[in-house]
Design a protein around this nucleic acid. Sequence first.
DNA 1: GATGAATGAGCTTTCATTCAT
DNA 2: GATGAATGAAAGCTCATTCAT
Lengths: 221, 221, 221, 221
Amino acid sequence: MPLARFHKLDADKQHRIIEAAAEEFSANGFEGASLNRIIAAAGISKGAVYYYFEDKADLFVTTADVYTRRAGFDRSVVLGAADADAFWAHMHDLLEEGWRFTCDNPLWVGLGRAFSQIPREMWADGPIGAYITEQLGLLGRILAHGQRLGAVRDDLPVDALVQVAMGLNESFERWMFAQWDDLDAAGQKRMFRIGLENFHRLFLPFPRDLFDAWHPLEDES
Amino acid sequence: MPLARFHKLDADKQHRIIEAAAEEFSANGFEGASLNRIIAAAGISKGAVYYYFEDKADLFVTTADVYTRRAGFDRSVVLGAADADAFWAHMHDLLEEGWRFTCDNPLWVGLGRAFSQIPREMWADGPIGAYITEQLGLLGRILAHGQRLGAVRDDLPVDALVQVAMGLNESFERWMFAQWDDLDAAGQKRMFRIGLENFHRLFLPFPRDLFDAWHPLEDES
Amino acid sequence: MPLARFHKLDADKQHRIIEAAAEEFSANGFEGASLNRIIAAAGISKGAVYYYFEDKADLFVTTADVYTRRAGFDRSVVLGAADADAFWAHMHDLLEEGWRFTCDNPLWVGLGRAFSQIPREMWADGPIGAYITEQLGLLGRILAHGQRLGAVRDDLPVDALVQVAMGLNESFERWMFAQWDDLDAAGQKRMFRIGLENFHRLFLPFPRDLFDAWHPLEDES
Amino acid sequence: MPLARFHKLDADKQHRIIEAAAEEFSANGFEGASLNRIIAAAGISKGAVYYYFEDKADLFVTTADVYTRRAGFDRSVVLGAADADAFWAHMHDLLEEGWRFTCDNPLWVGLGRAFSQIPREMWADGPIGAYITEQLGLLGRILAHGQRLGAVRDDLPVDALVQVAMGLNESFERWMFAQWDDLDAAGQKRMFRIGLENFHRLFLPFPRDLFDAWHPLEDES
DNA sequence: GATGAATGAGCTTTCATTCAT
DNA sequence: GATGAATGAAAGCTCATTCAT
């Protein structure tokens, strides 16, 4: 996470840095991203990066975090759900908000991919380790809460569900984003619906609940 | 694909090169992998790599291909399935063989990840493009065949299914492999069962078929 | 042309870099020149070259440009000549200044040769293209001006004259430089005189003007 | 010059090697030429090059020599000229034959350029030194003979004339070849005429002879 | 508080040449 | 007589990071 100094910068400069970094990391991955290009795009000095951030990883994590918050993935109203129905209703909102964000922010997909590219030895400690622990931890708590409410299958431990959820979301987002511009409003709505159904398919307790949760798309359109 | 010269090498040396490359690509991704480290580990000269392979991408593709064949993912008996039941029976074998391979070959997971990290502009042409076309094409044909048999949902186009299948498999494998050594035989068998069920959940037509396909694990153990 | 940073360097370091580059390019041509040798001779780090210059071509162009200016070939008073006599008087000064420079700066000949060795596909764009366009353009404008004044033959198009002028100048310079140290003052003066006559021979309109322009050397010595 | 073995090869293989080398050296210069590409184009083995030739320089010299002979530049009928008129008549034939060869053999220009690109330290000894000595020596003897006959100016020593002759020829050939395909038969003839005139301009004793030697193009066409 | 000059290790790739067979 | 496997040095270039100012 950035040194405290970073947050004292005027908003515009912060924004320029984050956007330039997002663009570069999204396009080139973590290793492939060039600090030189980022500072050139952001119009800041070389030294500034190391004045505001610990290192490249820290800049990446900060960037990813900004986007995560924008996507709404840091808010965990889901954790307040009182029963299975409320849980999935919240999940629906969370996922839809995320996907909607994805469609407006193509970089988000790339940032996700960049994330999984970080050398495994960095996952354990440093800024990256901390961020990962936090993000996966939140998702884990959400899914655990779902299990407690009987809204989420419990035949797999939480960390397995976390991995699978991330894999499903990333691959679906990637494909969805590639199609996005060719879809009309109805098609886009249908896409969200299918995306949510995929989560139902994978995470509902099985099979009764899954079956019950099924509402053909035609009913809604 | 490697220059013909490579296959004339004595098996041991071929093996050393492929293993060193697999290790490096698996741990650091495509971009992050260092040819220097690979040749050091394989005990060959720098020039040798370029004597046997077109370039870094070619070495990667060759390595990935060796592992793909070992994993049995190049064989497509599934395409011969005559009905939905046969299709899923074959899929079961294919996936189980793949997962079993994963458990013995931890690098396989990393190679898969390295794969999905390759810059998108390389997907189109060169050795990488050819390999990707071949691999995704095979998976696509399998899923399309499944759709034709009514064994696979058809509310999403084949290329979406391909993406999702890869994402699901990779994330599940990653988690499964992390647990593998702590499981007893029964646990491992259960893991495979759950993995297959995940595919059922995501890819079966919905919901009747999915429901029918459900056989609680307890029945078997 | 060098990044702005280069000109902020203290003069001594700039000088060391340019001289080392001139030496290397002059001796080995553009392709044959080794950045490693240049930095070793200049006593700078590898990164520094790329901090100051875009790439090898940029370093070469910058070096050539420094020498071109030193040789006085960037000034085009010739273009202001009002008649044929003035044109050739200016040409005389320009060429003599250039040759005098050559004698003091042996590297200049080599730089010229390096120049004509640059792969033709680089002539079009990049730092090299810009420099070439500028240099050949100037020479072309001078010769075209000469044609307009009736001071230069017009049975060949300007670009042919440019090529031939460069070829003549380079070959004559090369030979002249090799002899230079063995000549006494009178011999050197005679050399310049002959060099200029060669230009008269090749570029004057033919044959009346050429004949008129002839003043035996004996008249002057 | 090639080891004796080379000439024992069947003509076709010799031809393939020479043509591949000419193509490569012409296109990329001496340093820039790649033996790998040459053997690939010629369809011979890597070792063969070193079996038939001393080294890269030897291959180049051999190639250049073949082309030189084809261009007719090795025959020195000029040396047998009995008077100034005969000398220039022979020169006319020699040059025209050379230029005609150039037009049919674009590689010839490139080979000439490649020649001047060879690092200066190679000019002194080895295969290159020998070839250079031979070629420049022949041209020198021709010009010296011309001087003896009073057909060539003698205010410059022979080696200066040699340099200038080469520079003039190369630059004119380069330009002429670039235009060649756009010229009709009359234009091509005119080009040869002008080229020869250039030699008259530069090499005739001055000025009486030059003036006498002048025959306006219009007279002939 | 903020800069940007400077670095050296590292990158992928190409090369001419050697030599055991 | 002829091959082609194998090499190590060198190429141009980019990099994240440091630190004096």
